[in-house]
């Protein structure tokens, strides 16, 4: 059984029909990439799964449970964690406080240890733990956002445009990190405009077009797909 199952969801912004029946599934341990142009509905899909928006039709199953109408804050303790687009770190809190907010739903004693392992994963954050997050560079803020999401000990990590606004050198670093996290058993659903990078690390991918899934295939096949190459990879 798939860890996440999205069945024919329709989501609206007021009267605007943003998602017109999106369906896909994510198996445990996979890295799945959602790619597509601006306004194709990638972020809306993530927001619907994470509970920030509710689908008007269709359903989302997580671990066999219907979470279509669950509120976002209740999903965190069930193991779904999100790295929002534009990073969304709390600019006025310190690095350590940001990480602590990530573990907000946890009441166990392991938070201290997890802080340490975050700093091992991202040494830059360890050097700057008392620094206010707003003063970090873009790349460091992205690292912080990811580290913060991991603090909730998620089984499913939703990543929204992790490469946005980063220098190419830093983009490589971010994707390396994502692979490393996946190798530790966290399932990853990745929304990316940078289709090239996303399809290199993903197992499977879905191409969204105007609120619908246009193509679904393995990442390797998608990289060879002519339409994908022309439209998203810039290869003629």
């Amino acid at each position: 059984m798939a860890l996440l199952e999205v069945n024919d969801i329709h989501t609206y912004y007021g009267n605007i029909h943003a998602l017109k029946g999106v369906s896909f599934e994510v198996d445990s341990g996979e890295i799945i990439a959602l790619i597509g142009a601006n306004g194709a509905g990638k972020t809306t899909t993530l927001r619907t799964i994470s509970g920030l928006m509710d689908p008007r039709e269709g359903s989302v199953f997580y671990d066999g449970e219907d979470i279509s109408l669950s509120r976002a804050d209740t999903l965190v303790s069930k193991g779904i964690s999100m790295v929002p687009e534009g990073r969304g770190v709390f600019a006025k809190l310190t690095v350590e406080e940001n990480l602590d907010m990530g573990a907000y739903t946890r009441r166990d004693g392991g938070i201290k240890d997890d802080l340490e392992s975050s700093y091992e994963l991202f040494p830059r954050l360890g050097e700057r733990k008392k620094q206010v997050a707003g003063t970090l560079s873009g790349g460091e803020q992205q690292m912080l956002a990811i580290a913060r999401a991991l603090m909730a000990k998620p089984r499913l990590l939703l990543l929204d445009e992790p490469s946005m606004g980063l220098a190419p050198v830093l983009v490589d670093g971010v994707f390396d990190t994502v692979e490393r996290i996946a190798s530790e058993g966290v399932t990853i659903l990745l929304v990316e405009q940078n289709a090239h990078m996303a399809l290199q690390i993903a197992d499977r991918g879905y191409v969204l077009q105007s609120g619908e899934v246009a193509i679904a295939d393995t990442a390797a096949n998608l990289r060879q797909n002519e339409t994908v190459q022309r439209t998203y990879l810039g290869i003629d």
Binding site: G51, A72, D73, M82, P84, G88, M101, G102, Y104, A152
Partner: peptide, 12 residues
């Protein structure tokens, strides 16, 4: 700072 992100952290 950001209600949506706060919600995504699991804050009610």
């Amino acid at each position: 700072e950001d209600e949506d992100v706060a919600t995504a952290m699991g804050i009610d």
